[in-house]
Design a protein around this nucleic acid. Sequence first.
DNA 1: GACAATAAAGATGATTTTAGTCCTATTTAT
DNA 2: ATAAATAGGACTAAAATCATCTTTATTGTC
Lengths: 147, 147
Amino acid sequence: MLNLTRDGEYAVRAVLYLSSQPEGKISLISEIAETQEVPKSYLSKIMQHLVRAGLVRSRRGINGGFMLARPAESITMRQAIEAVEGPIFLNICLVKKGECHRDDFCPVHPVWKEAQRRLLEVLDGKTMAALASDGEALSKKVKKKQK
Amino acid sequence: MLNLTRDGEYAVRAVLYLSSQPEGKISLISEIAETQEVPKSYLSKIMQHLVRAGLVRSRRGINGGFMLARPAESITMRQAIEAVEGPIFLNICLVKKGECHRDDFCPVHPVWKEAQRRLLEVLDGKTMAALASDGEALSKKVKKKQK
DNA sequence: GACAATAAAGATGATTTTAGTCCTATTTAT
DNA sequence: ATAAATAGGACTAAAATCATCTTTATTGTC
């Protein structure tokens, strides 16, 4: 349907939250779930994907929780999304050569290729560090408005 | 899942086929279905959407069939897709202001807006006439290769 | 007017995906 | 040991996907 699933949305929120925390701080699932408005038990699933993808590190037991596995500057929006949704392909014909046998003579194929390139350019171009910084700026604006 | 459905794929194929026909020619569903490798009864549904969207005109009865309702130059890929899938939104937060109540302070929102803008730019920029012409060029190339 | 060809429209259904919940491990600091 | 935390699998309801089939409406020809 050409739109992001909950999985992707929640993954971005979670990684963004961790990126906004002081370095080295460990965050609880319940903490992330509440602030990011994600069902806790669902989030648990999402976090596991993020861990397996190497974006997030977890610690079990008392004083456990989650933190980024890498600097927020090195994690892109695309990576967060693909960690839970798998690789992004606007159309199956982009999965790999030969996936669609009409490839050779289909004039639509190159259009999708270009569309996908442009989409990914945006998602690749936004790091979690940048998002976190944008978020801070926004929350200052909101507070000003409320005065 | 961020990818095109069959509906969208088939719609593009069907409109493209009609765009490649001599002007004024009426095409049968079975003809479109066979050449475009779309199940006939499924295609029937798709064609109805295209008719209602005003991209295609139909005639019932003997000698009936389908033809473009407008010049192929005036039909974009986006229009063909949205005729069957509805408006394209990469994320629900783009549907309309207020759809996502995190809008005001969410730094991710503008990124999706930009990504969507770029994607639509590509789909808006490709007319069915252009695709048909690209298709012709491609089929010549394929024939050459086969020699 | 009867008939055949054709699309329109609606009912139905199998399969997959989505969006979760819940329960039982397993790990770990104290 | 115990309490606090994540890990991971089983389960589910609802929706979307990808169709098929049947009936109805329209239209040209004889």
